[in-house]
Design a protein around this nucleic acid. Sequence first.
DNA 1: CTGAAAGCGCTAACAA
DNA 2: TTGTTAGCGCTTTCAG
Lengths: 355, 355
Amino acid sequence: MTRKPEPEEKDPARQRRVRRSAGGITLRDVAKLAGVAPITASRALNTPDAVSPEVLRKVRDAVAQTGYVPNMLAGGLASSRSRLVAAVVPTVSGPVFLETVQSLTESLAEHGYQLMLGQSGYADSREDALLEAIIGRRPDGVVLTGIMRSPEGRRRLVSSGIPVVETWDLTPTPIDMLVGFSHEAIGKAVAAFLKQRGRRRVASIHGNDERAVRRHRAFDEAAVELGIGGKRKSAPPAVAVPAPTTLGSGRAALRELLDRSPEIDAVFCSSDLLALGVLTEAQASGVRVPDDLAVIGFGDLGFARDLHPALTTVRIDGTAIGRLAARLIIERVAGRTPDQPVQDIGFSIVERASA
Amino acid sequence: MTRKPEPEEKDPARQRRVRRSAGGITLRDVAKLAGVAPITASRALNTPDAVSPEVLRKVRDAVAQTGYVPNMLAGGLASSRSRLVAAVVPTVSGPVFLETVQSLTESLAEHGYQLMLGQSGYADSREDALLEAIIGRRPDGVVLTGIMRSPEGRRRLVSSGIPVVETWDLTPTPIDMLVGFSHEAIGKAVAAFLKQRGRRRVASIHGNDERAVRRHRAFDEAAVELGIGGKRKSAPPAVAVPAPTTLGSGRAALRELLDRSPEIDAVFCSSDLLALGVLTEAQASGVRVPDDLAVIGFGDLGFARDLHPALTTVRIDGTAIGRLAARLIIERVAGRTPDQPVQDIGFSIVERASA
DNA sequence: CTGAAAGCGCTAACAA
DNA sequence: TTGTTAGCGCTTTCAG
């Protein structure tokens, strides 16, 4: 079923070049079958209201008959709308962002958008190559988990003109749009929460990624201020573990902590996985939670509430973040200006048995 | 910085149409700056060996100066190589496939490919729309987690001509390429393992997704054959829970199981998350693992080995699956025929304390 | 090794 | 409402 050398030249002698079509069905084929011009077929598919019912029917029949699937690369090139949105996460296996990615994927799919996924790694080494790969695809939007730190990266994103949503953090100087919350506020709130629950010698275990570190810095400061940081005015005991955090590193960290500072009565963990590790280690070594030790996590992953004891944790509405990010981008693409391009969606402390 | 109406017509009066360029920097701009033809600039970027060092330098300088980023939509359209690979997972939040997605993303990135992520949901309702969205983007490959059941879907994929890798399963009739393992073999192996460890009244808890069901059917049959299915020749007790499985559903399922069949001495769970739920519930209700009850999971997620007791589980090398799938596609795109287009990567039972 | 011409498949801009 | 024309930005083909 090779394509005929169609556009019959007035002077057949001048025909030389060869068509290199991949042989797929194109809009032209559909249009011809329906007996209309290609642009009319295009309209029937994209803006059905703009064509007569008669034409609509014929085009749809032709599509059904041929099994035509529009080539969105071509469409994107012509319209400069790729209907692609890129998301960058530190790593796919960190379960914290999954909820966001999932809701983003779904929200976008509802509007005919597809998600491109990129992993930056926690060390932002590959970030540059990734950015190039992303911008080169001319996505209609980019969603970053975390804010873009590298000035070079910021510059490239800005000059690309692509709508950007930074998430999971706040900054006074967003690249463009933002849906996040304050890690400092969380650190403070957790310290206050623990004090209010009667804890007096708090400690922390945190991953060494930037956001976790900031939560815990704020936690430490607040703990000192509130006088629950242990002896004198020194910062409370803390153990840093490499990101991404794991159950295993949580267990090891608790051992280290209890070794160094057996007097502690509460631990703030920078992820629920760490907290699960702490619970596990506590159970294995006979430390009673919450009696001897209060444990509080971060993320409110699906399993948190079903643990034994149920895990008190900081809840972030990752689904809302994804949904809002999608909406911001879609609004932007539609040419509208979102009325809340920068949003703090806050957090909450979900109080359960572990603290 | 508007573009000049550049291609000066011989007869300026005939100029009417307006350029609608987005105003970005294109290869033409780079070429002009470097003093070469666009195609030469293209070659300098894509096949540096095919141009003189002199030209290469000039083009690279021009790229650096302008901040040019190639438009891959255009490139993809012209070359029919999108450098995009689509992956379909049931849901992002099921941690089982994460390892595969992660390794796929990384392996592809190394070769300049980007991953497009789609969620099919466990009920394959949206699968059709998803397939259209995917094929429309003309990816260079599609990676499916699980095999494509819908005949309609198979047909569309086949007729699209896109290389397809089905994963995480085996079938005598793959669409194209495949990297998987046998769920039936796993069910049998687990039953044999439990018998060999002295268990005599096994049971199972499984998600209601197709692959889990098949593992457990095989498990049940083997258990009956081996005489460890409980009384007489009836199938061992089982509880089905909705997919995706959770810690909570594991807890509830164990309660139900113990309620109905208190005599059981082993449980095979269709995911590590379920198994964690079983461990949690066992601990909460005073059932000793492994003394009273052996527990075995599936997936060998990161946390399995650090649990208390450490979880015995079926290990699937998800990273290898991702890596191999990427390689198959890249080989195919390069025009080579992979020498092992269908691979059974097997599984192993990781024996730890829980069984 | 370099370049001119001709598309890839689609849609924006105009015109009827 | 429909059609004509001219690209979108790149690469393939063919010819130096």
